[in-house]
């Protein structure tokens, strides 16, 4: 049916349906599953996402080294105050993302989206949008469908592995597909959704994967929070009419090439970037010795 984002968009525009409809049809053809079975799978993932996005809001999770333990709880409390700069809503979204990251680091159950290191972004965005606009469950699941369809294309044509493409390929792609989901959940056009995807990816291009002590904690949790916000602001830019002049497939290709150009020290090896700072080295020593 399609093998890149342009073809997916063309099909949706030709038939005047949202992207998720075409993605659903492709999935039915590919997996030989019924629509009902696919929505059952989406529901199962939604539940895991919701649980992990809420679990650490109230209860800090013990992790190796405890580099991010309690961040979500603390931020959730702050998000309820009158003093925030970004408002209660965006802060709550960040707390959701932090919670998923904390649960993940504690070897708890999460849903990779598209990876475990980036598992907080899509849940934070879809829960945030769906709670704010009181969406039906079906509309929320459609959002997951939009995101996963675009993610499949990026996975096929580029990469979603931090070891291959850096953080831009994990948290960046998560933000890009979550941005498209947010647009479709707000009934934006397929073209707006694709623009949101490109804009979010552009905003994060070049981001390296440099986990302190090799742990999926810092800066992963912070980047889950910031990329959830990137997804929402990119969705807003697209819904407001901003067009990305470079087509989405070329943006994806550029992201992939940048990933290839990054030295291995900056791709999940914990040998460069933030991981190579004296303080990170000291933390690493303290945790593993």
């Amino acid at each position: 049916m399609y093998h890149n984002i342009e073809e997916l968009l063309a099909l949706a525009e030709e038939r005047q349906v949202p992207l998720y409809k075409i993605i659903l049809e492709n999935e039915m053809l590919l997996s030989e599953k019924s629509e009902e079975e696919i929505y059952k799978g989406l529901e199962e993932r939604y539940r895991v996402m919701k649980t992990s996005a809420n679990k650490a809001l109230s209860k800090p999770q013990e992790t190796v080294g405890n580099l991010i333990t309690g961040l979500s709880h603390k931020h959730s409390e702050y998000s309820n105050t009158e003093n925030t700069l970004c408002g209660n809503y965006l802060n709550k979204v960040m707390a959701f993302a932090l919670s998923c990251s904390e649960v993940n680091a504690a070897m708890g159950k999460i849903c990779a989206a598209p990876t475990a290191g980036s598992c907080g972004i899509l849940p934070a965005v879809i829960l945030g949008v769906s709670e704010k606009f009181r969406l039906e469950r079906k509309e929320t699941l459609d959002g997951i469908l939009t995101a996963s369809g675009l993610g499949a294309i990026i996975m096929k044509n580029a990469t979603v592995s931090g070891a291959e493409g850096g953080c831009q390929a994990e948290c960046g792609v998560a933000a890009a597909i979550a941005a498209a989901a947010a647009v479709e959940m707000r009934k934006g056009t397929p073209r707006m959704a694709v623009n949101a995807c490109s804009l979010a990816l552009i905003n994060v291009m070049g981001l390296v994967c440099d986990p302190v002590a090799g742990l999926v904690q810092m800066p992963c949790a912070q980047r889950n929070a910031s990329q959830a916000v990137n997804a929402l602001l990119s969705a807003d830019l697209a819904l407001g009419g901003m067009v990305c002049p470079v087509p989405a497939d070329e943006v994806v290709e550029a992201m992939y090439r940048i990933g290839k150009q990054l030295p291995s020290e900056l791709k999940e090896t914990a040998l460069g970037g933030l991981a190579a700072t004296p303080t990170a080295k000291k933390l690493e020593y303290e945790i593993f010795h």
């Binding site: 199962e44 159950k109 999460i110 990779a112 990876t115 475990a116 999926v216």
Partner: peptide, 8 residues
């Protein structure tokens, strides 16, 4: 759906 912390 998996146990963290890293899909890869």
């Amino acid at each position: 759906i998996m146990i963290g912390p890293s899909s890869s």
